[in-house]
Amino acid sequence: MDKVFSFVAGLFLLLAPQAQAAEVDLSDPYKMVRQVADQTFKRIEHDQSKIAADKEHLKVIVEEELLPYVDYKYASYRVLASYIQKARNIEDPEEKKQAIDNIKRFMDVFKDYLVATYAGVFTQYTNQTVEFDPAKEFGNETVVVVKTTIKDPGKPDIDIGFKVRKDNSNQWRAYDMIAEGISLLDAKQSELHGILRQEGIEHVIDLLEKKSKLPVQFRGEGGNE
Rank of each mutant, 00 (worst) to 15 (best):
T117E: 12
D133E: 14
A174Q: 02
I178L: 10
N168F: 12
A99H: 01
A119K: 02
Q128E: 02
F122A: 12
D92I: 02
I160A: 03
T126S: 04
Y113A: 14
Q85F: 14
K86D: 15
D159G: 09
A116N: 11
Y125F: 03
L114M: 09
N89Q: 15
A119R: 04
T123E: 10
K163V: 07
Y125V: 00
D101I: 01
N168M: 14
S82V: 15
E180S: 14
V109L: 04
K104Q: 09
T149I: 13
E137W: 12
A81M: 15
A135I: 07
K104E: 04
G120N: 14
D176V: 04
Y113M: 11
P134E: 09
D167Q: 11
Q85L: 15
D133K: 14
A116D: 10
L184N: 09
D157T: 08
D157P: 07
I90N: 00
Q98E: 14
W172L: 02
P134W: 07
V121Q: 12
F122K: 04
T148L: 06
V145S: 12
T149S: 12
M107L: 07
G161Q: 05
N102I: 00
A99L: 00
D101P: 00
F110I: 00
V121K: 13
N170V: 03
V144H: 07
E141L: 09
I178A: 04
R173Y: 00
V164S: 02
P156G: 08
K111G: 03
D92H: 05
V144W: 01
N170Q: 02
A116H: 07
R165P: 07
T126I: 05
G181P: 08
K151L: 07
Q98L: 13
T117C: 04
W172S: 06
E95A: 07
I182P: 04
E131S: 13
V144I: 13
D101E: 08
F132Y: 09
F138V: 11
L184K: 10
D108M: 06
I182Q: 11
K96Y: 06
Y175F: 13
M177N: 05
E95H: 04
A99M: 02
F122E: 06
T126D: 13
K111T: 07
N89V: 11
D101M: 01
E95T: 03
M107R: 08
G154V: 00
